[in-house]
Amino acid sequence: MPSPSNKKDLLQFIGMINYLGRYIKNLSANLAFLRELIKENTAWSWGENEEAEFRRIKEMVSEVTTLKYFDIRKPITIECDASSLGLGAAAFQDGRVVAYASRALTKAEKNYAQIEKELLAILFACNRFDQMIVGNRTIIKTDHKPLLNTFEKPLLKAPKRLQLMLMALQRYNFEMEYINGKNNIVADVLSSALTPISKSDEANANLRANIFKIIGEKIDGETMKRMLI
C-alpha cells in the first residue's frame, strides 16, 4: 500500500485502521501525526514523521497480536470489493482478520463491467483463501447487490464472462450476503490503495484466465449445457 498523496486517501486508510482499532494496542498514540493531518484547517504536508507513523501502523495491522490464527473448526467470513484499480479481500473469524489479500487489475480487466469486476474479486478471494474455505462453512460478503441475483439464476442466463467465473467457483460451497458499502471498509481500502501492477503479475493473471478458457473449450456443448443448468 503506497503512502497517501492527499487527505482523501489518508481518511480512507485511517477509516480501516479505526475499524481494526480494538485489536491494536495504543492506537491513538500511534496515530498522532496522521490524525493531525486530516484536520480541516491543516494544510497537506507529508513529511518524515507522517511517513514513519504510516509505516509503523501498517506493521501493526499485520502483526500476530492484531491478526487471528485460522481455526479450522470455525466458519469463515470473506469480504470482497473491486475498484477501478484492483481487487481486495479480507478473511475474518470471530470478527478478527485472518488474512488480507489484494491485487491490481490488468489492463484488460479494467475494461470489465463493474459486476464482472465484483465477481472477479470473489473468484480472486476464493483462490487466495482456497485452503481455508474448502470443506469449511464460508460466508462471502459483497457490496454489489446485483451480484446476488447472478448466483440465484441458471448459469446459462449469465453473460459468458460471468459464466466462466461462476464455473470456476463451483468447487466452493459458500453463502452470499450483501454488505453495505460503508461497512465494507477493509476490502474497500485493499481494492483501491494499490501500487501499479507489474508485467509479471499481468502475465500470470492472463495465464490463469486462459486456463479457464481452455478448460471451457475442451468441454463439449452437451456437457457444458448440463453443467450450466
Rank of each mutant, 00 (worst) to 15 (best):
P2C: 09
P2I: 09
P2V: 07
S3E: 15
P4N: 10
K8A: 13
D9T: 08
D9R: 04
L10A: 04
G15K: 04
G21I: 03
G21F: 02
Y23V: 06
I24C: 00
S28F: 00
N30W: 01
E36R: 10
I38F: 00
I38Q: 00
E40L: 02
T42P: 04
T42N: 08
N49D: 15
A52G: 05
A52W: 03
E53Q: 06
R55V: 10
R56V: 06
R56Q: 10
K58N: 14
V64M: 11
Y69L: 14
P75R: 02
A82W: 02
S83W: 01
G86F: 02
L87H: 06
G88K: 02
A89Q: 03
A89W: 04
A89G: 04
A90E: 04
Q93G: 01
D94K: 00
K107L: 09
A108H: 08
K110I: 00
K110D: 00
I115Q: 01
I115D: 01
E118G: 02
L120G: 07
A125H: 03
A125G: 05
N127S: 15
F129D: 08
I133D: 09
I133Q: 10
V134R: 15
N136F: 06
R137V: 10
I139Q: 11
T142L: 00
D143S: 08
H144I: 04
H144N: 13
P159N: 15
P159F: 15
L162I: 15
L166T: 07
M167I: 13
A168K: 13
R171F: 06
Y172T: 05
N173P: 05
F174M: 07
E177A: 15
Y178V: 07
N180P: 07
K182F: 09
N184R: 03
N184H: 04
V186C: 13
A187K: 08
L190H: 05
S192P: 01
L194P: 08
T195W: 03
A205R: 14
N210G: 01
E217Q: 14
I219K: 09
D220E: 08
T223K: 12
T223I: 09
M224R: 12
I229R: 01
I229E: 08
